[in-house]
């Protein structure tokens, strides 16, 4: 038996950098360093754990849709222990939205072959948290998403989803699309050996024609949503800051009373 896992990872601008918009109102990727979205490290980690806990032959492929530099994200995932990587790269992809991204991912996942797709809970730049659900809809397979615990066995994926109102136990047969949260367990750091090994692992590049996707199905012009304006939020006006010299709590109460909160 073998199990083919595809982990979808996104290359994102560093959240601690000064993120802003380019002139065409897409995310500016030039001025801020990019990296593998931290939330996708959890997806790579769970794939590795599933592999380590399995008697089957597990093959882990990491997949990204993104610009040239997105290779860095793939390298990081490979150095954590994934087996191979696929990079979908095409100039026509610039500005693609979630609906378009899910199309590209679906075609790429199908072409790669899969039993299980593992995604992160959300990308740290767009933070929509919808691509895994869209991917499941496109592939016509179960979505088992936002899991804080996941296991695979006997052709079934099981997991725990901690929702607003309840914590749910979920179950679906493979093939399926899973997403995992940052509660699923700390992601490992790449070892020196892992980093060296990653240099020799295969990274395949595909463009839109490899996936039979028309250029008018993706990209900024064909996006399903239009951003009309983006304005920097005015800095909050500087507040009052006091040093506690024994009366700090009372002073704070006075402020809250003045604002009618008490």
């Amino acid at each position: 038996m073998s199990l083919r896992i595809v982990v979808t990872v996104k290359y994102v601008p560093d959240a601690t950098g000064d993120r802003h918009f380019a002139d065409d109102l897409t995310v500016d990727r030039d001025d801020v360093d990019g990296l593998l979205s931290e939330l996708d490290e959890y997806a790579v980690e769970q794939a590795l754990q599933i592999s380590e806990n399995s008697d089957d032959d597990v093959e882990i492929t990491v997949l990204t849709v993104g610009p040239e530099d997105a290779k860095d994200a793939l390298r990081k995932a490979l150095s954590m222990g994934a087996d191979k990587a696929i990079h979908v790269e095409d100039d026509d992809l610039h500005g693609t939205d979630a609906i378009g991204t899910s199309l590209v991912l679906a075609k790429a996942v199908e072409k790669a072959g899969y039993d299980l797709v593992i995604s992160g809970m959300a990308s740290t730049d767009g933070t929509m948290g919808v691509v895994p659900a869209l991917l499941a809809e496109r592939l016509g397979v179960p979505q088992v998403t936002l899991l804080s615990e996941v296991s695979v066995g006997d052709g079934t994926v099981r997991g725990r989803r901690d929702g607003d109102a309840a914590s749910e136990q979920l179950e679906a047969s493979l093939p399926a699309v899973v997403s995992v949260t940052d509660q699923s367990g700390e992601a490992r750091y790449p070892s020196f050996k892992g980093i060296m090994a990653a240099k020799k692992k295969p990274v395949q590049s595909w463009d839109l024609s490899d996936l039979d996707i028309d250029e008018d199905e993706v990209g900024l012009e064909n996006a399903y949503t239009t951003v009309d304006s983006a304005a920097e939020r005015p800095a909050r006006t500087a507040g009052t800051i006091v040093k506690d010299e024994g009366e700090g709590g009372k002073q704070l109460a006075e402020f809250l009373a003045g604002q009618k909160f008490i």
Partner: peptide, 28 residues
């Protein structure tokens, strides 16, 4: 966090917070 605040107290929360709670209770 102080860059965002309308009102900030630089101090030990174990002093400030209980005092605040007491003061709110008194006022209410």
């Amino acid at each position: 966090i102080f860059d965002l605040v309308d009102y900030g107290v630089v101090g030990d929360l174990f002093d400030v917070v209980p005092q605040l709670t007491e003061e709110i209770k008194t006022r209410k």
